[in-house]
Write a protein that binds this DNA or RNA. Sequence first.
RNA 1: GCGGGUGUAGUUUAGUGGCAAAACACCACUCUUCCAAAGUGGUUUCGACGGUUCGAUUCCGUCCACCCGCACCA
Length: 508
Amino acid sequence: MSTTPAPENQMEAIVSLAKRRGFVYPSSEIYGGFNGFFDYGPLGVELKKNIRDCWWNDMVRRRDDVVGIETSIIMHPKVWEASGHVAGFTDPLVDCKVSKQRYRADQLFFAPVVIDGKTVGYVSALESEKTAEDLQAAAESFKRKKGIQGTLLPVAIRDMTEAQPDEIALIPSPATGEPGSLTEPRSFNMMFQTNVGAMTDGSSVAYLRPETAQGMFVDFKNVIDTTRVKLPFGIAQIGKSFRNEITPRNYIFRSREFEQMEMEYFIHEDADWSQCHQEWIEWCRQWLISVGLPESHLSLYAHPKEKLAFYSRGTVDIMFKYPFGVQELWGIAARGSYDLTQHANASGKPQEIFDETTKKKFVPHVIEPAVGVDRIFLAVLCAGYAEEDVTDEKGNVEKRTVLRLSPRIAPVKVAILPLLKNKEALTNRAKALYTKLKRNYAVQYDDGGAIGKRYRRQDEAGTPWCVTIDFDTVEKEGDTFTLRERDSMAQRRITETELLALLAEHVY
RNA sequence: GCGGGUGUAGUUUAGUGGCAAAACACCACUCUUCCAAAGUGGUUUCGACGGUUCGAUUCCGUCCACCCGCACCA
């Protein structure tokens, strides 16, 4: 019988296991932790590296039409002006301290109520089709209620980004109608700033990249000039990105420093982008399945047209059912020629390709599958985590915690276990096998404690197979070991040749 | 950023204004012929800072972190 912990406890159990076994630690923990940042421990770094390697192998090396690059994390500040991040990543927000409502400052409007040339108060309104009328009506109502005589001037509308500090306390909250509860507009540009060089004035400001994608666009010309790629082709990159998230949440799901795997697939301007988009969505879905995510936990979400960024022709997210809800895992966006055009305009360097048939130059369009390594990491942990009730020979029921990770990404592929550690014949054979296997695979040698305990220890680490060197190995013909499978706990005898074949088949 | 909750060992949790504990884990030794065996020994803890107090892990304050809800997530 298998039991799954209730959803409200599952994240806790996973976080606890991840810490206990050395997958994920809170960042800077001895200083009390640091919100939005995480460290990956010895098992975690292996798992993460395997996720990256699988993606790189499948996306770059095993394809003829995708090449890889690695661009710098800090790029010329103009990159982010051209991409729209300097302007678009800023969202000044205003809070109402009484109602706890939060407003975008540029969508919250106000006006002074001016009677006989004297400002007697303020009115406010949210952005709508008739903001001006609303404010005018509010001003008239204000005048009536206060019983002030005189001539009311037409209201002069401004939004909260233009409010003077001494005005903010006088502007009523749209929620309560009373002044005094609104905060100053706070700017939340999500790009981390730093300074390059010795000077720290405005001229030296640079940004930590909030996405790796711009590297592919900025190096587009370099790649087509120095390699033999022909449309359609992709440029891929894996690397760290940084976003100063207002509220990091859900463990490593939304953190301030994270790792992206992005690919920009460039196609002819006349190509059927919709079909290409669909093909990449399916490719990504199959890839997720290939690293062990159950199809049942995956779903697609097409962004509604009216919510798309103006340059986007369509964005589909592959969603994953996390314990805390169905959340975005992999976004596949059709971005048209927006990015290359932006950089062409900003840099003055055309980003074009020559079409031999039409003898015309054009800017390619792009399909962008973008995924976070950390989100896949969390997904495989959540999907693989299980607690089972197992009954032993005496009828005792015990809990088994197991991490069902695909052999492709499991941090340890095989554990080599001598049945007993005080019998040299066993340990010598085990060490020889260990030495041989570790040249090509991540393997562990473990002779500590009883065999059952070692099996369970490997279960928690997600090791798909254990190989036990027993007396039959060294005393009987055939040099066979016990192969114990993590998921079924089944055992069978296997030769070294068969073990190598098993690994070659499942670890790729 | 707001409201609520929570911080004690690697993990899960007891407990107290006066020597800080248990289980599991981990390490060592003995033992052990296939699913968290047994014995002995051992390492490790009151999130940080300040206040009250003769004395604070405990009470108070501030901060930090984590969880839940709201808001936010070009």
